[in-house]
Design a protein around this nucleic acid. Structure first.
Lengths: 213, 213
DNA sequence: AATCACATACATTCATGTATGTAAATTGTC
DNA sequence: GACAATTTACATACATGAATGTATGTGATT
């Protein structure tokens, strides 16, 4: 049995993506042998080279599939309520953290992205997409913070760009460290409290960068 | 001229560490060829294999040299003032951020650690040391938070473990993201404001994890 | 009949580890 | 302090394995 029907073809492609995510997590992307990915998926390297050009394209596909749900959340939130921008920001962040806390494959994705991957030239397309996504996310959150300042939810002297960098760093750090030790605390239950702490700090003492002397 | 005096020997060793840090940053640790490191240092692979067993040991030495100043700061702070534990925590975090903001080699180190390195089995000793350092740092900060609660600097219902995880994540995230785009904002000037925001949140709305239903 | 979705086989590159060479520096001896 | 003897700090040469990319085969499908 060599040739499959179209649905079987898609199934092997997904099996390859699943296997790749697992092996990437175990061995690291750079040290991963395509033969291992293939055998894990129950096929040979021929199947990989049929669906993907090389390891970089396979990795890009894994990332693409893994970040789709998060991007969907962002896109959905962009056209939702703007009555309460601060609550919108909180909900966005909360959903990202809960997605991580409750989905094993999301944990695997971020484990690979944060700790099992080298962002160098050969992964240039993935790096470029990451940068673009980050920039879009940052500008979207900053717009919400600007609205929050405009309606008095945040102090008028808030440096919204800095506040955005701070929140983004907070989220990245929480995910970066939690995937290293998911047992250290219950992220699903604590996420909201952790977010409230930072947001309270934003309201009470928003970051302002001192002018150069 | 082959054989050097002892000071020359140490000089080539340091040249190898410098070259390794550069090449690691450019190519990523896994994709780095020891021949590139050697030629960048003006020697051959023979010199590397004389000073280090393999790439893993070279990387460990690079990390060792890079984290020494930070560890010295922590050790020094552990035996300093305990009159104002919250201020001590702030100063510790501030010095870490300023060290990153002002030292190019520290930026290179963290760029490698965060984005140009895969933490897998072959780097096990480095991973183990990282884990130990993180655990020590977390417990030290938590002890300071406990003192802050004891003397009324933080609310009595503060979950100091969660607060510690939050601060640590905040710092990791700030460094993780800033090294990606050091031009995005002036970390040296904004570090204190960013820290004050989180610490204000801690005082006003300390994180508490809700009990499971 | 033609193409698809792989499997198999092959050639090539490439980095590593080791083995060996070697000149200078150190040590020991008197 | 002169002079081997030995060790140091590398450079050079070599063998090996390992992963890659490609070329080709092949049976089912459309």
């Amino acid at each position: 049995m060599v040739r499959k029907t179209r649905v079987d073809t898609l199934a092997t492609r997904n099996a390859l993506l699943d296997a790749a995510l697992q092996v990437f997590r175990e061995r690291g992307v750079a040290h991963t042998r395509l033969a291992d990915v293939a055998s894990r998926a129950g096929v040979t390297r021929g199947a990989i080279y049929w669906h993907f050009r090389d390891k970089a394209e396979l990795f890009a596909a894994v990332c693409e599939r893994g970040t789709l749900p998060v991007e969907a959340l962002l896109a959905e939130a962009s056209r939702s309520q703007q009555r309460d921008p601060l609550a919108t920001v909180k909900q966005l962040a909360l959903m990202a953290l809960k997605q991580l806390a409750t989905h094993a494959d999301t944990q695997a994705m971020f484990d690979v992205i944060f700790h099992k991957c080298e962002f160098t030239e050969d992964l240039a397309p993935v790096v470029a997409k990451n940068d673009a996504d980050r920039a879009a996310c940052l500008s979207q959150v900053r717009a919400l913070f600007d609205q929050a300042v405009a309606i008095g939810q945040l102090p008028p002297d808030t440096d919204t760009a800095l506040a955005t960098h701070g929140l983004h760093a907070y989220l990245v750090g929480l995910m970066h460290e939690w995937v290293l030790a998911p047992a250290s605390y219950d992220l699903a239950r604590c996420a909201e409290a952790l977010l409230d702490t930072y947001l309270a700090g934003l309201s009470q003492r928003p970051p302002r960068c001192p002018k150069p002397t």
